[in-house]
Amino acid sequence: MTNILLGYQPLFDLFLLHLGMAYSQWLVLRAGVFSLATAGLAAVGAYTGGILVVSLGFPAPVALLLAGLAGGIVALGLSIPLARLRGVYQAIATVAFIQIVLSLNIYASGLTGGPQGLNGIPKTVGTVTLLIAGILTVYLMYTITNSRLGRAFDAIRQNEAVAASLGVSIVRHQTLAFIISGALAGVYGALEAFHSYALAPSQFGFTFLISILAYVVLGGRNTIIGPIVGTAILLLLPEIARPLAEARMLVYGLLLILVINYLPHGIADTLIERARARRLSARLAKSDSVATTATRN
């Protein structure tokens, strides 16, 4: 029994790492920023953390914080040109940003190890650390969602003119969402570095970007549960049906197309919406029947 569970531990670790990245993506989308920069910001965090520990001998916890800071600062810089763009142009600009990060990685080989990657990172992060990080992340996403910030993000995403007419500063809130998303990506990038001995530049490329986006779109963009459901399904699926593992990206692609067509709000969001609709119509029916019995008496 314990052996079986232990067998799944690497998968659980991967789930927790990718969940954090998924929340980084989820948060910007929630604020109406069509950014795909999470992969690039995770690379910034991973390499910041790795270099600080390997070349400069920083303790891992300090390096982790600095990696989060680096992710947030780079996001702040990136938010300036991004604020002038909307929709698909934001997506294109952030993909270009990922390209820049990946090529800088190769050029600065003295610092990053270049195409060979960064090796010899001491493994300081295990399942327990990741679990704590995961719980903290979900907590933060919950508090942000239920605060004035979350309400402002929701309004901006749905209608910028309405948000502005109610006093919401669009640039300030989108920048803030982007910084938090960047810090989160930076921290999780470093967690990944400290969890896996080595970093390769290709690790944060196109495949990674699509996976992260798929978790959010498949699970749901407007509920906290969304990324958990999406990440769990997409990581478990290839494990349950082994032959699918070979064609992971093909499966992701097909699933995405299916979900976008039939459950455009994602699996978790759609189920939650339906449950809510049932509960509300039941309540309505009950108050109606109360009203009719009242008139009958």
Binding site: R148, D154, Q158, G167
Partner: peptide, 28 residues
């Protein structure tokens, strides 16, 4: 705001009066 509930649609109207710090909002 069609994704939000009726109550949430009104809550956003109070945005101007919400004064708690950004950090307090993030940390709950």
């Amino acid at each position: 705001l069609p994704d939000n509930s009726v109550l949430e649609n009104i809550l956003i109207g109070f945005h101007r009066h919400e004064k708690c710090s950004t950090l307090a909002a993030i940390l709950g």
